[in-house]
Write a protein that binds this DNA or RNA. Structure first.
Lengths: 114, 114
DNA sequence: TCAACAGTTCCGAATTTCGGAACTATGGAA
DNA sequence: TTCCATAGTTCCGAAATTCGGAACTGTTGA
């Protein structure tokens, strides 16, 4: 297993962010992670209610989120702890993440807009 | 040529917006249109400096922008007049478009962030 | 040493994107 | 009218991407 790649803050590309968050499943995962404060594991974040996401797809979702710069993942024992990079991101792209989550109606503790 | 489809405001999906704007070429076109006030034609918006975009790709870009709800297109004589739906969009997804254009450093009259 | 678990990688099938060539619609000129 | 030029769309095959099952890797606990 090669080490996980995380882009440096200044290397994060807006197109990668938008692409990553143009998939509702990934948004749901990311929003859940943003809401859940601490680091959720992959499988804990996987339950989106409506569908069983195959492990490999899930792994790929996390990879896309990670490599776009949206999350940080770190192995801790047998599982993976994930956390958002929201604070950093907001410095680089002010208001972006919040506006996106709001658009999806996924901002923690907010009524669904969609 | 079938008539052009434009989604109603309430049918616009955030995922479609993000997907459409996850392509730098489309962003460049959209930003140019947003900057250029009035309705630019397809070919007028096509010149992004760095690359000759094939007509068919260009047509497809406009289709993606149109069907995601980002722009309105209307035939006027031999050409196509396009305009952004920024005002409507900002009502439905407050701050979203601006945050995205800012992230790309494409907000009219702003230094490049990327 | 082994089994179980969390997640990754591999790889073939299905889907999507890209772009050249042919086509369509409109307006102006002869 | 007919013909031509212009602006854009559609078609369709090739290339690239995505999806997901199966096999694999790394870690912990028995």
């Amino acid at each position: 297993m090669r080490p996980l790649f995380h882009p440096a803050l200044e290397d994060i590309k807006p197109e990668a962010i938008l692409y990553a968050l143009s998939d509702p499943e990934r948004v749901a995962i990311f929003a859940k992670l943003a809401g859940a404060g601490g680091g959720g594991t992959c499988s804990a974040l996987a339950d989106l209610g409506n569908r069983v996401i195959p492990k490999s797809s899930l792994s790929n979702h996390f990879k896309v989120l990670r490599e776009s710069g949206l999350i940080m993942s770190e192995r801790q024992g047998v599982e993976m702890r994930n956390q958002t990079r929201c604070t950093e991101l907001d410095e680089r792209f002010p208001g972006l993440i919040r506006a996106i989550l709001t658009a999806y109606g996924q901002l923690p503790g907010q009524p669904k807009a969609n």
